[in-house]
């Protein structure tokens, strides 16, 4: 399980625009680097990120080799209903990493 950090407001007023932040520990190996022996290090990146509120996708993004290691993704959401936020990253190998958090709308 990868290390994931999330930043979600504790509770928000209905209709307020909130900032959600998510960071994941990942090397985002671009495939262009070489190791100390001069061998190419194979590409291994996260390809896709999405955030769901319940079953609805509220944000998604495609990631590419130019994205830095440990990518930090920040986006905004107009809070209207409470629910479980699921942050999911998909690696090119098909493996997924996720973490959930509760969104409480007053």
């Amino acid at each position: 399980m990868a290390d994931i950090r999330l930043s979600i407001p504790k509770s928000v007023e209905s209709g307020a625009v909130i900032e959600l932040k998510a960071m994941i520990r990942h090397d985002m190996e671009s495939g262009y680097r070489r190791d100390i022996q001069g061998q190419a290090i194979p590409r291994n990146i996260l390809e896709y990120f999405e955030c769901r509120l319940g079953d609805t996708v509220i944000f998604s993004a495609d990631l590419f080799p130019g994205v830095s290691a440990n990518p930090l993704i920040k986006f905004y959401h107009r809070a209207q209903e409470s629910g479980t936020l699921t942050f999911t990253w998909r690696e090119q190998t098909g493996q997924t990493f996720y973490k959930t958090a509760e969104l409480v709308v007053l």
Binding site: R5, S7, K21, M23, R25, A69, N70, L72
Partner: peptide, 8 residues
């Protein structure tokens, strides 16, 4: 404190 990757 959030953006600093060291906190991972």
């Amino acid at each position: 404190d959030f953006g600093n990757p060291g906190f991972l």
